[in-house]
Amino acid sequence: MAETKDDIENLVPLEIGLQAGETVIMWGLGILFWLISFVFMGLAVGWDFGGFFGPTMYIVGGGFLLASQFVTRWNPLKTTRMPITGIVIWLWVVIFGAPILYWGWEVYSDSSMIWFVVGYIILAVLTTGGLLASNFLTSLKIMNWMSQDMRSTLYVLGMISIIIGITTVGFNNKALLDLEELTWLQWEVLYVFSMSFLFMMELHNGAHRFNDIIKYAKERATGEFSLTPVINSYYIMGFILMVIIGFGVQLMLVINFFIRWITPYLSEQMANSVMMNSVYSVVFTVAAIFIPIWIVLIMWMEFKNRRETAEEDLMRRKVETDTTPGIY
């Protein structure tokens, strides 16, 4: 018996190829939305990126996203026990997240920068060592969990880089500090930015997902069934859903406007406070909306879960007593 295992993940040494034709369009749209989000981020901050680091990270992130659709199958994890891609992701965050922490320290703290640098390096080395040690010595394999195949790793690196870029660009950006000074147009620019960011994320992810399915379908059951209805459904339903999400985000902004409009009637003191006129008020709005929603949702899910389990038990008992098991 020669074969003892299905080798679906072949050890192909760096086979690079484009993904399935059906998903190329998602990838192309994803890149387009990456560009749009970049442009609208620039518009939102009045093209004041606060240096080169932010935009550079954004572009590097875009490059990773682009590459994540090319590389297939080659999985460095298969040939070694080292969680290579996990380490790469971790180090990427450690190295490129450092400038943000550094600037934060510079602004907030009166302590010496030397301490920051020394402290950060020691902490980073210790944490990395700890993560690696935990990986090999205990069952807490964070690095292994972070280790994904090449494609997902590039996707994650891309998203991390873009978020680092956005953090840097928006860090204390004077254009966005005082909400009172933001015009309606600026809000809309921000809205388009966030939605195109979402589209970019979703389309790249969708391309990955459907590529996997198409690949499996082709390997296993050529001609047996067609995935076109599924992909079409994704485009149509996904678009409808995205429109609803877009309305949802707009609604959040409207609620925030409403809250800031109503506060003076509640307390002029609060209405004029620094927090109510800065990012904090948006976050308070988010918290006021989402915390109750999610508490209700989680409770609802829990109740439903319990009801379902009971129903299923009942059904199973019925099935077991059924003498003619056939059609379910």
């Binding site: 939102a44 949802g248 990012v279 948006v282 988010v286």
Partner: peptide, 27 residues
């Protein structure tokens, strides 16, 4: 991103967070 957005007073990050939360809730 919400926490980082508050710490860096960064409206861009907060906007992304709002989009992400609405995205999850609607789904």
């Amino acid at each position: 991103t919400i926490l980082l957005g508050l710490a860096t007073r960064n409206l861009l990050l907060i906007m992304i967070a709002i989009a992400g939360l609405v995205y999850t809730t609607v789904s």
